[in-house]
Amino acid sequence: MSKKILKGRVINGGKAEGKAVVLKTPFSFIGDFDPATGTLTKGHPMEGTSIAGKILVCPTGKGGTVAPYIAYIAKTRKLTPIAILCQSVDPILALSALTIDIPILDRFDVDIISEIKTEDELEVDGEQGTVAICGK
């Protein structure tokens, strides 16, 4: 199968393979995410969508400083995303990913929000700093 390779900057390394969930708005583990279910909360444009076990694609982070704790709680229940890709990450989302030790990459050579579609199969290589979109 053909693959399209995107190149980005690695903030935390590691590898992950899975389906993408693409958000158009900045994301925070506090407020946008329910650590009991792994889904996006009420009021979010994609309310009810599960990001557990998925590769989260979003413009950047936002919101309160307790977020890494929420990510930590979700991790104890195995309900976190398995990787995060951002246009340009903010420190709190970066710290959330570092806390649960999942790959997080940003600053890609293309606009990931328009390039990647929800349900796309991705291969994240946080050693090489690449993301492969399978089937493209």
Partner: peptide, 20 residues
């Protein structure tokens, strides 16, 4: 963080519970 930066002129980075 925003008040320390904007009202006091101290310097605080946007960061979370782990790094503090």
């Amino acid at each position: 963080q925003i008040m320390a930066n904007s009202l006091i002129g101290a310097r605080a980075q946007r960061e979370g519970i782990v790094s503090v």
